[in-house]
Design a protein around this nucleic acid. Structure first.
Lengths: 149, 149
DNA sequence: ACGATATTGAAAACGGATTTCAACTTATAG
DNA sequence: CTATAAGTTGAAATCCGTTTTCAATATCGT
């Protein structure tokens, strides 16, 4: 498994793109972040330490990460695109808390296999899939916390 | 099981909303349509027979359908909201063809059960979920048809 | 029919994603 | 080490689907 930095630099070289300080700064911050941040949220975080970097650059760079395989784009239906580190973080699905917004990851090999079976019975070739469970996380339903309105 | 028309009228009454000709026209067209149409697509269809109805009204009425349970909103990641008849069309998941855009429905009770198990092990209360498999439908991969670019 | 209230359609506003563009930076060739 | 071509940057503009605004209109209860 290649390191993300290496994979990104390889990608830049292959595409004759340039290695800029902004890109390296964004990459380093992206690999450090743990949550499933939207472009906006990530930008606001980054801006604290690097006020000079513009939103457009952050957006473009996150897309580059997705193209070269070190990030994956997620859409949990809240109208914001989210990015997560995908390299070294193997396939998983998500539990999304509709009260606090927390996003948990899970993996279930049986479900994966059943999906393959479903596809086969429909003579369908799977390229990608998404499975998300929406509801209340442990913290939100045990404390009777009302949903944020 | 209540009829969709009945359920909608009940909902209107309960909320002190009014029964207008536009709403009935839209309901009837919506129940007749089979595909998973976006608001825009549905509006363009409807406009052929009913040129007087505005986009805003269609949009608002589709949202009403979702609120009263006869429609459900879907988002397949193409940036458009889609609506499908949900009343009398029990829970199912989707196979989305990335080449021709066709959307097939499927149901798998084993997957449903495994989802419940996953939620339980995370002490998570499921309110909703979505499972979509993206790829090539039978027609698109057997004919070697290149993806639309 | 009246009056209160909801609805309508057109247009404007909204919000996030994406593009434009002139100034600037990087990589490569000389 | 320049010079130069090509890519990148940040701010602002644009895009595009969704949602709201508002004045005119329709509906419903009386």
């Amino acid at each position: 498994m290649k390191k993300p930095e290496e994979q990104f630099l390889d990608y830049l070289a292959r595409k004759r793109l340039k290695n800029t300080s902004q890109r390296m700064t964004i990459l380093s911050a992206f690999l450090r972040q743990k949550a499933h941040l939207s472009t906006e949220e990530f930008y606001l975080q980054l801006r604290k330490e690097h006020p000079g970097i513009g939103y457009a650059t952050v957006h473009r760079t996150l897309k580059l990460f997705a193209e070269c395989g070190i990030a994956s784009e997620r859409n949990f239906g809240d109208g914001q695109m989210r990015f997560e580190v995908s390299l070294g973080n193997e396939h998983h699905d998500h539990l999304v808390c509709t009260s606090c917004g927390q996003i948990l990851e899970f993996e279930n090999q049986q479900i994966e296999q059943l999906q393959i079976d479903v596809a086969r019975t429909h003579n369908f070739i799977i390229e990608d899939h998404r499975l998300e469970l929406y509801g209340l996380c442990s913290a939100c339903h045990t404390t009777e916390q009302p949903p944020v309105s």
